[in-house]
Design a protein around this nucleic acid. Structure first.
Lengths: 264, 264
DNA sequence: CGTGCGGCCTCACGTCGCGTGAGGGTCAAG
DNA sequence: CTTGACCCTCACGCGACGTGAGGCCGCACG
């Protein structure tokens, strides 16, 4: 009467009408989720109306993200609403996890593209009046491709204003100690000077792993870039040049030739 | 100076300080993501400071959901911000997918617990004045544990008001045709009566797969439950009893004995 | 000096839902 | 009789490890 005269559809036909792949039906058969009602004489799977109906129910629950095993239990008399409620909870917790990831990713993106997650006002408060927020953009422009910038950005993404406060204070006290050491006549290459050089390197290493060679390169900029020079000269005249000699001597003591040292 | 006197940590120690499992470090080594700096004389992995730093960077990106392969490329000089932007998009699309699933799951939960997703007002509009919304609750109470109720709920979750409109009209026209057939003297067991019985079964099957035996059980309720009886008597006196005879005769023609037929 | 116990090593299989061949039979049309 | 489209059964691959199995290593205790 209802004119499906034959014994059923082949996998390909069933797959077509269900809009799934043949492999999917094979898999569902393998795990006993949807078995074809029978086989043709030559071993072809034959799916009857009841099989197709079951497969459709499987699809319905699969679209809700339920694991196939649970769908099987559910279709064979299990408690649907219990599974559904559990599934809703799983989905919601997963969504929360993903949202936390999005949050983190966006912090990282911002840190990488802005250099700092602080507003200009916050930067002024934390780094003091000598600070120009445009420097961050310039630094990103020049070093944004380097591995060290990536490292810097990763760490910056995890810092908030109070973290920066601490870092800024550490740097200020280092600058002050450098200035008084110079005034007290500490000689580059002396133990005291080398200790200060290492303290400088540690401080830089809060931003990225800084080798002795890199430190030498940084010291060059302190002398060559008038803005850095001005920063150190404000603490004590001649400080930039003295710091370079301190860093160079310490580098030599660690087997690095300051004359030929390169970044990386 | 900074007093990590030895050549590095063993896997267990490294795993402890990184708060990952030993197996995870093994895996990262296998795929070349984080290799230990060296080995002890007896073949133990030894992780140095640089290795631990790299592992920490891996953790950072792993928490953002990036695949390990991409993290590897990224740490070895790849473009971090490109990966991050792509990752954000992947996360957002995934979140949308999960939200759609939550939506579907909640529809299913509601359909299962309420029986219908329509408001009482909508039900009155669609099913007419003879309809009592409390019947749905009663039906859920009595049949909520059956496989057929699950099927019904699954399908109900996918229907909106206009779908129900169509279903209600189909049922009304069937009732009308049954009444006129009875008045015209159609005999139970005749081809015309059997065709009507099958049409009834098809209509019920929009809600769940209805066998001939189940149909016989339904017909019994039509006669036994005064509310169903009243529904049919309103169309034509004696209609409920006549319909039962039609259904029973058709069941017999399909090899089902109405006297012993049970649900399932 | 042996002995135990905890940590390390290297395979190697299991997870979940299929995708993607490999190698070979089946079916209807030309 | 051939061709091409279908079907069959293995069986590996993915991603990020978990979980043993079987065996070596190192340190403390008797």
């Amino acid at each position: 009467m209802t004119a499906t005269d034959d014994a059923g559809l082949t996998v390909g036909e069933a797959a077509g009408s269900l809009r799934v792949t043949v492999r999917t039906l094979h898999h569902w058969h393998e795990i006993g989720l949807v078995a074809p009602g029978g086989r043709s004489a030559s071993g072809y799977r034959l799916y009857g109306a009841a099989d197709l109906a079951r497969a459709q129910r499987v699809q319905l629950y699969r679209e809700l993200g339920l694991p196939l095993e649970e769908i099987g239990a559910l279709l064979d008399g299990g408690d649907a609403s219990a599974s559904l409620i559990e599934q809703r909870d799983r989905l919601l917790t997963r969504i929360d996890e993903l949202r936390a990831m999005v949050n983190g990713v966006e912090r990282m993106i911002d840190a990488g593209s802005r250099g700092l997650l602080l507003t200009a006002r916050q930067q002024a408060e934390i780094f003091g009046p000598g600070w120009d927020p445009a420097w961050v953009d310039e630094a990103r422009e020049r070093y944004g491709d380097s591995a060290q910038w990536s490292e810097y950005a990763e760490r910056a993404a995890g810092r908030d204003a109070s973290d920066w406060q601490g870092i800024a204070e550490t740097m200020r006290s280092l600058d002050a100690d450098l200035a008084s050491a110079m005034r007290e006549g500490v000689e580059p290459g002396s133990d005291a000077a080398n200790a200060l050089a290492e303290r400088h390197r540690d401080t830089i290493s809060t931003h990225f792993a800084c080798s002795h060679a890199m430190q030498v390169c940084l010291a060059r900029t302190y002398v060559d870039d008038p803005r850095f020079t001005a920063h150190y000269e404000a603490f004590a005249p001649g400080l930039a040049a003295w710091l370079q000699r301190v860093i160079d001597a310490n580098a030599r003591a660690h087997g690095v030739d300051p004359a030929t040292a390169v970044w990386e």
